[in-house]
Structures are given as C-alpha cells and as structure tokens.
Design a protein around this nucleic acid. Structure first.
Lengths: 200, 200
DNA sequence: AAGTTTTCCGCACTCAGTGCAGAATTGCAA
DNA sequence: TTGCAATTCTGCACTGAGTGCGGAAAACTT
C-alpha cells in the first residue's frame, strides 16, 4: 500500500470520525459539509472526491456486506437449498461485516429512523445490495431459479428482516437489549422463509 | 368543493402535466422546478406549496394506494387468513388505484429505474406504505399477529413483489407496452406469492 | 532532479428548498 | 355591492448541496 493510499484512507476515516462527532453533537441537518471538511482538515471541494454525498458518510462500507454475502453464496455446499444458502449468506453478511457495533452503527440506526434523507439512502443501498445478491443466487442455481424467482426470494427475505428489525428497533425498551433483537431477527427470518422451506 | 379547492386541484394537475411533458422531452435532471412552475403558470416559490420536492411530482397519489389497501383489510371476512387478506389488499391496491396506466405511470417506471433520486423517493414511499399496512394488519389480527410478525409478513410480500416486478420490467420490450406491464404485474405477484399459497 | 501522474482545492456557478413579508384572491357578512 | 377576514400567491434574499474547471501541490517514476 503506497503512501498515497494510506493517506487517502486516513483522510477518509477522519471524515467519517468528524461526521460522527458533529452529527452526534449538533444533529445531522444542522451540520454542513463545509464543517465536516474543516474538521478533517481538507477543503470543502475535496470532500466530494471522498464521498458522493453527505448521506454516504454514514455508510462507508456499504459494499463489504455485499461482498461477504456473495462469497458465502460462492462457498455453498452441493446439497444446500437456495433458501438455505441465502439464509447463511445474509447471516454471514451481518456477522462478518463488523459494522454492527460502535458509535457509527448506533448513529446510523438513529438517523435512519429520524432523517428522511438518510432513510432514503439506506433504502437505496439496500435495494442495490439485494439485486446484486439475487443475481448471484440465480447464477448459482441456474436450473432451479430464474432471475425473477431469485429476486422474489431475496426480496421476501430482506423485506421481512428489514421490516421486522425496524419495527423492533422502534420500541425503545427492546432497542437496548441485544438478545431481544437477535431473537426477533430470527423470528422474522423464519416468517419470511417458512413458505419456501419444505413442509412436513 | 369551493372555488379555492377547485382552482387548487386544477393547478396541481397542471403541474403534474407540465412535469410529465418536460421530463419526457428534456429528461428529469435537465428540467428545473422553475421551468415546471413557469409552464403551469405559477411562481417558482408557489410550487413548494403544492409539492414538497421535485420527485413528488411523479407520485401525486401516493396515499391512495394505501387507503385502498387499508379499506380492503377493514373489509375482511371473518374466516380469512392474514396472508389471504394481505394478498387481497395488495391486489386491490394495484387494481383500484387507477395509477397503473397513462403517460405518468410509464414515465414513473422509466425514471424510477434511471434516476437515483426518483428511485430513492419511490422506495421511501413504498416503505411508508408498507409500515402503514402492517400496522393495520396487526390491528386486524390482535391475537394472531404481533407487530413484528405483521411487519415481517408485509415486508416479505411487498419485497418479493417489488423485486420480481422490477426484474421483469428491466426487459425494455415489456416496459413500453401497457398490456405487457399489466401482465408482468400479474406474473410478478404470482411468482412472489406462490410460496404462500396452498400447495396442491 | 526532472518529469509525469495524481490529488487537492479555490472560484464561480446551478439548482433545490426555506423564511418572510407584502400583494392578490377568495369567502363571508351586512 | 361593499367591506373585512382568511387564505393563497409570489418576489426577494438566503442557505447549502453538488459540479466543472484550472492551476497549485504532492506523490510516484526513472
């Protein structure tokens, strides 16, 4: 890794840190990009060569989750059902992306609920991830899933998990309890996948 | 309906018409709000008392679909399963909202795929609809569905249908033909909902 | 050390969106 | 019809996101 790359990574991280700090202290909308850039000690104009928009500061590793999920699909075992692979892939994406904890994650959850622009960006990123995963899943099971069915399967799963998790996180009591969250996520995935799994 | 209300409705429609025309001819991003307002013969400033943003011009009846779906839930028969009611509600929302045909609908489909800002708004509106429907469904089955399960169920339905429909509409041949769109919608909901329907 | 490539960043700009205050329009009552 | 109150319209001034451009600065290469 060259000096250039290291410096660039450092600046990028500084931007995220500055943003988390400022968003947390003054709120999202009250913080301008100029302030964030100043706090990270770069010119305002330069900000846009690191992030395309203000919202993206909150999702600095959006592609990593997708990569993990895609790898999980690639590493399927020969007798796994599509729904099983998908379940494993999404679980792995949540576990391994390492993005579930820390101040950034907490802030992201809060702002996604409170600020429409952030929610919009979150939904858009999720949508793109979902499509990418569906493409890979369809490619992994060319004779069992056409593209439309794969999209429906992934859509059902992600939709159920997202909706359930959001509803859950709205309750301030449950929001703080990791065990409750994990349990409900489990419940949601079961609801979503039940129709696709073989019945007794 | 008073003069005021009628005039207001007429202006609102004029804005949508002007926007459809301009978006279609020059593209979405190349059209400014000032142009649209001028075409509808109102001041630029006044635009924002009709629509909160440029994107919303493409979704002028966003609440109607939700109302239809909620009414459908309210009119359930006593022995209907939650999934059946939901299926009927979503079908009805698509059929009755009358928003599936005409130049606005065609433009909306195209721009939702092509312009990120439009897609973001579409996803956000869908998200809100979904939550509203989930709330009503949970209220309709207080002893069978808790809030989280209802959210998961609706999320799975809507997610599957949306993903399937989008994948279908990506085919440029189908996208231009209203009959094909209707057929695709039918097909998409069938694919998406097949797993939930009773098996032979 | 000199030249090449990449990154930085100030400047000027466009456009979305907001607050405000006054003008215009409409509704209502006498 | 006229006069008054409520609502709506709209110009003005402003903020902030985001872009294009061109030159300065930094990093890489030989």
């Amino acid at each position: 890794m060259s000096l250039r790359d290291r410096k660039r990574a450092r600046t990028r991280q500084a931007l995220v840190d500055a943003a988390v700090d400022l968003f947390g202290r003054q709120g999202y909308e009250a913080t301008t990009i100029a302030e964030i850039a100043a706090a990270a000690d770069i010119g305002t104009r330069t900000f846009f060569s690191y992030f395309p928009s203000k919202e993206d500061l909150l999702f600095p590793e959006a592609d990593r989750r997708v990569r993990v999920a895609v790898d999980a699909i690639a590493g399927r075992s020969p007798d796994e059902e599509p729904a099983e692979v998908l379940l494993r892939a999404l679980r792995q994406a949540n576990d391994e992306s390492g993005d579930m904890t820390g101040p950034l994650a907490a802030l992201r959850i809060r702002l996604t609920m409170e600020v429409p622009a952030v929610r919009g960006r979150a939904l858009q990123l999720q949508w793109e991830s979902q499509r990418e995963i569906a493409r890979h899943l369809a490619a992994a099971y060319p004779d069992r899933l056409d593209e439309v069915s794969a999209a429906a399967l992934v859509g059902a799963f992600v939709g159920a998990a997202t909706a359930a998790l959001t509803t859950l996180l709205e309750d301030p009591r449950r929001r703080t309890d990791p065990a409750a969250i994990r349990a409900s996520l489990q419940q949601a995935t079961e609801v979503a996948l039940r129709p696709w799994t073989p019945r007794p």
